[in-house]
Amino acid sequence: MDPNAAMSDGSKTALSKSTFHFVAGLGSGVFTAVLLQPFDLLKTRVQQSGTHSLSAAIADIWAAPRILPALWRGTVPSALRTGFGSAIYFTSLNAIRQTAARLSSPASRSANPQSSSSSLPKLSNTSNLVAGAVARSLAGFILMPLTVLKVRYESTLYSYTSLASAAKDILAKEGVRGFFSGYGATALRDAPYAGLYVLFYEQSKKRLSTLFPASHPLQTSIPTAMPTPHAATINFTSGILAGALCSAVSNPFDAVKTRLQLQPARYRNMWLGAGRLVREEGFRALWDGLALRMARKALSSALAWTVYEELVRRAEVEWGRRTGRGDARDRL
C-alpha cells in the first residue's frame, strides 16, 4: 500500500472526525441555548444591579407587552455564542484528550465498553482537569465578542434594537477592547469551572456506571456497549451534579464579569470591580443569580454533554461498521 495514500486517508479520517465533533458540539450548544435562554436572561437582570431581586426581574418581564419575546430576548447572540462556543470547546477538548490518551500508558487508555456510558478517552484526573480548562479558555477568548453582545442585549441598561447596532455602539465608544470586557473574570470563571466539570463529570460517570452491570458478565472479552437509555441516564445525571457544583464555586467570577461587561467605565477591571462590588453591596452581591445560574448551567451542561456523547456513540458505531473496525480504542 502506498504510504502517502495511507497518510492521506488518515488525514481525511482525522479531519472528518474533527468536523463531526464540531457539528455535534454546535448542535448540542444551540439546542440548550434556545431552550434555557429565560434562565440566562433572568440571571443577567438580577446581576445587573444591587437589588438582588428575582421577583423584580420577573415582574419587569411580566410587564412587557409580549411575554414570550421578552423571556427569549437575546436568544440569537446566546445561541451563536453557546453553539459555536460548544463546537470549539468540544472539538479542542477532544483533540487535547486524544493527544493525552496517545501519550499515556496503554493501561490508562484501556476502557471496558461494557461498564462505560461513554466512548470518549479515559484519562487521569489531572489530565481531565487541565484539558477542560485549556479548551474552555480557548473557546471563551474566541467567542468573547458574542458574549459581550449577549449580556448587553439581555440587560435593561441598553436599548439596542439589533446586534449590528450594538456592535457599532461598542466599537464607537470603547473600541475593539470593548468586545473583550470582562475576559479576565470570564477566564477565571470558565477555566476552573470547565476543568473541575470534566473531572467531576468523568468521576461521576465512572461511579454511576457500576449501577448497570454488563450484558455478558461471564464473557468479559465481548465488547458489549451499554444500552442507550442507561448511558443517557448516567451522562445526564453526571452533568447535573457536576454543573451544579461547579456553578456554586465559580459564581463570584460570573457576578463580577457581568458588571464589567455592562458597566466597563464603572468597573474598570476584575480586581477593582470585585472590590467595588463588595464595598458597595457586600459579599452577598458575589452570589447574585446563583440559583438561576446553578439551574441553567446544570441543565445546559447536562443536556449538551448528553446529546454530544450520544451523537459520538452513534457515530462511532456507524464508523466501525463502514470501516470494518470494531476496536473500542479507535476513538472518534
Rank of each mutant, 00 (worst) to 15 (best):
H216I: 00
F236P: 02
T233D: 06
P213E: 09
P217R: 10
A214Y: 09
I234W: 13
M226A: 04
S215M: 05
P229G: 04
P227R: 06
P229M: 04
G239A: 07
H230Q: 10
T220L: 11
S215I: 02
I222M: 07
I240S: 12
I240Q: 15
P213W: 14
Q219H: 08
L218G: 00
F212P: 01
S238K: 09
A225W: 14
T220W: 15
P227V: 02
I234N: 11
T220D: 12
S221A: 06
S238T: 03
A231V: 03
P217Q: 06
T233N: 09
H230A: 11
P223Y: 14
P229W: 13
G239Q: 07
S221P: 00
T237F: 09
T237E: 00
F212D: 00
P227I: 01
T210Y: 15
P217I: 07
T220R: 14
H230S: 10
A232V: 05
H230I: 00
H230Y: 10
S238L: 08
S238E: 01
H216Y: 14
A214V: 01
T210F: 15
A242W: 10
T233M: 12
T228H: 06
P223V: 01
F236A: 08
N235E: 13
I234F: 15
A231S: 14
S215V: 02
N235R: 12
A242G: 02
A225M: 07
G243A: 10
I240K: 09
A232P: 08
S238R: 12
P213F: 14
A225C: 03
F212R: 08
L218P: 00
F212E: 03
F236R: 04
P227W: 08
T228L: 15
I222D: 13
A242R: 02
I234S: 08
P227E: 01
S238I: 03
L218E: 09
L211Y: 15
T220N: 11
F236K: 05
G239H: 11
H230K: 05
M226N: 01
A214Q: 08
A242K: 02
P229D: 09
I234L: 08
T210R: 15
L241S: 08
